[in-house]
């Protein structure tokens, strides 16, 4: 039942190359995913601002357009404001815990350094070891980076809170039962002969195509995330053949081989969406001209737009809060490791200090 525990050991050069490759890959994948998500946000934003698809669904002028009803159901199904409240409640505690761990870790360094300085002052040149202030520099730098990260997280919390404050009313409205929601939407005059209209047909087709583009991006994202291959054999071979690893050249080639196709497809998808959005906006202009425009209709339209945007904001908030929670929990682990590092080195210093004191007293 022998298993070689060293089977994954590689030369240092390969380890470093793998690390650098990992960074490149992460950058590429994150960039592609960010592009795609941004374009979905853009599409949603444009549609909401044009009151689509609600406007072309709104035949009666006083019942809730199906798409708005669907959005309301989606928000309710995900727990509505309660989900958000819950996630938001936990964040300050998580932040506080992380702060405390970091503060504690750095405090033990500070305390030991004070004592070391005192002894240095007392024994002067007889206190021969490296000063703690010198020794602890890398740890303090690391601690400083952690603090910066916590500051960024605090700012992120604030952004999320503000977003919540701005949109909680609309989200609450979306969570109401259908009858109540309907009552909150101003009545408008029904749009005349809506269904048969050519421009409505066109808009429906374009919106369906836009939805397809969104779905395609979801597929891409899943596919891109599941691409997996092992670079260690490539780097090992290069090292064996050439005695050195040209990491950049090898990584770029391999990344292009595995992701190049996706990069291409994503670009095509984004371009297609750009064209669709332009056509949708043009068609919407036509549509607006052909529909009766008055105060009632405008008020209704504004409310429907707000509700559509509210759904998107809810989704965004939930994502932000999940991201924040994940960050704080993951960061706790990192900080605990850091704290252990600090207390370990301080313990070693104390032991060393006691030895030195003993020697000095004896001499």
């Amino acid at each position: 039942k022998f298993t070689d525990v060293f089977v994954k050991m590689v030369p240092l050069a390969v380890q470093q190359a793998l690390s650098a490759y990992g960074q490149r890959r992460a950058d590429l994948v994150n960039r592609l995913i960010a592009q795609m998500r941004e374009s979905t946000n853009l599409a949603n934003g444009v549609l909401a601002s044009l009151n689509l698809p609600a406007a072309i669904e709104d035949v009666s002028g006083d019942s809730i357009p199906q798409s708005i009803l669907d959005k309301s159901k989606a928000v309710i199904q995900q727990g509505g404001l309660q989900t958000i409240d819950q996630l938001m409640r936990d964040l300050p505690e998580l932040l506080q815990r992380n702060r405390e761990i970091l503060d504690e870790a750095l405090k033990v360094l500070d305390q030991e350094e004070v004592t070391d300085n005192e002894l240095k002052a007392k024994f002067k040149e007889r206190w021969k070891r490296t000063p703690s202030s010198e020794l602890y520099k890398p740890l303090r730098t690391e601690g400083g980076n952690f603090r910066t990260a916590l500051d960024r997280a605090t700012h992120a919390d604030k952004v999320v809170r503000e977003r919540y404050a701005t949109h909680s009313e609309v989200i609450a409205l979306l969570c109401k039962p259908e009858a109540e929601l309907n009552a909150a939407i101003p009545s408008g005059n029904p749009t005349k002969s809506l269904q048969g209209s050519e421009v409505v047909m066109l808009l429906k087709t374009l919106l369906a195509a836009l939805n397809e583009a969104k779905k395609e991006r979801e597929t891409f994202e899943n596919d891109i995330k599941s691409v997996q291959f092992d670079m260690s054999s490539k780097f090992l071979t290069a090292l064996a053949q050439d005695g050195a690893i040209n990491e950049e050249a090898i990584s770029v080639t391999e990344l292009d081989r595995y992701y190049g196709g996706y990069t291409e497809k994503v670009q095509q998808n984004l371009k297609k969406q750009e064209e669709l959005l332009a056509k949708i906006q043009a068609a919407h202009e036509e549509f607006s001209k052909s529909t009766q425009s008055n105060t009632d209709a405008n008020q209704r339209e504004e409310m429907l737009k707000k509700l559509a945007a509210g759904h998107d904001q809810f989704v965004e908030l939930v994502n932000n809060l999940k991201e924040g929670t994940k960050f704080y929990n993951g960061f706790t682990e990192i900080l605990l490791k850091f704290q252990t590092k600090c207390s370990d080195i301080v313990f070693a210093r104390k032991t060393e200090r006691d030895e030195l004191l003993k020697d000095l007293q004896q001499s």
Binding site: N145, F146, N320, E323, F327, F331, I334
Partner: peptide
């Protein structure tokens, strides 16, 4: 993304 990347914060330092 709003929050810092955990990957950037994980430092694998060689034990000295």
């Amino acid at each position: 993304s709003l929050y810092p990347s955990l990957e950037d914060l994980k430092v694998d330092k060689v034990i000295q």
